[in-house]
Amino acid sequence: MALLEVDNLRVEFPTRRGTLVAVDDVSFAIDEGEVLGVVGESGAGKSLTGTAIIGLLEPPGRVAGGEIRLEGKRIDKLPPDQMRRIRGAKIGAIFQDPLTSLNPLYRIGTQIVETVLTHTDLTPTKARMRALELLKEVGIPAAEHRIDHYPHQLSGGMRQRVVIALALCANPRLIIADEPTTALDVSIQAQILALLRRLGRDHGTAVMLVTHDMGVIAETAHRVAVMYAGRIAEIGAVRQVVGRPRHPYTVGLMGSIPAVGRDQERLTQIDGAMPRLTDIPRGCAFNPRCPHAFDRCFADRPDPIAMADGKVACWRFDQAEAAAEVGHA
């Protein structure tokens, strides 16, 4: 049994001009110690999927369907206080802007100690030692000294480490990291990603890494889900999705990323932009931009089709072709 299972998740935003479906029929699972990358362009629903799992959807957004199970127990219908306990103890969250997760009025040590005390039965002295341990673990130099600093005295990279330390306080089973490195410089980015990878390896923590950056996914995640217009377009092992993408959207996405050493006059270009949630086309949401779209793509919505090493929501890979490809593999 996977640590986290998400089945047919649907997130809706009722507006006065009708209900918008921001996350539609999304299913995936994350195993212990696994890093699942969720990648997509802005508005694809990747962040909302993460927020729905930790139960922090902002009203009027709501989970309108599907199930979220953590260690086999449903967590999508829990009352707020129970959910809050799970959020502290079992699920940790890291957001893009570390400042929003830290209270500017308290020393970072105080904030970590408090969180440790809430979730464990350590004595205050032990809790402080644990806080120090956590700060060292996330790679804060001179932790004994920094523990008494206020958030504003730290640099962006250091703050993000503190946020990760906070998320680790209760030894969570799952960490949801939403664009954890987007606000950071490249050199710091590498350090934070190395840290996230180590968590899975050393503690068996599962990580859901939400990002728009394929490079980050490629070097951090074990598996990756590519989202488009609220749905999963393709999910599978990272080598498969990044190295041999199948969904036309993923193919285009990979081709549109420039690379050092790759000389080309033009980048592969997917024309147009992702549709607004208010006018997602009939059939496959990608059909207006797809170079391979045929009649069926304009009529029916493809569900993810199981293939070797993953699933692809594209009619080009329906049963017959899929079987053929599995046979090849």
Binding site: V186, Q189, A190, D213, M214, G215, V216, A218, E219, I257
Partner: peptide, 13 residues
């Protein structure tokens, strides 16, 4: 520090 998109399995230094 360029992220490795070619999946060579390299860990960034």
């Amino acid at each position: 520090t360029i992220p490795d998109i070619t999946m060579s399995g390299r860990e960034r230094m």
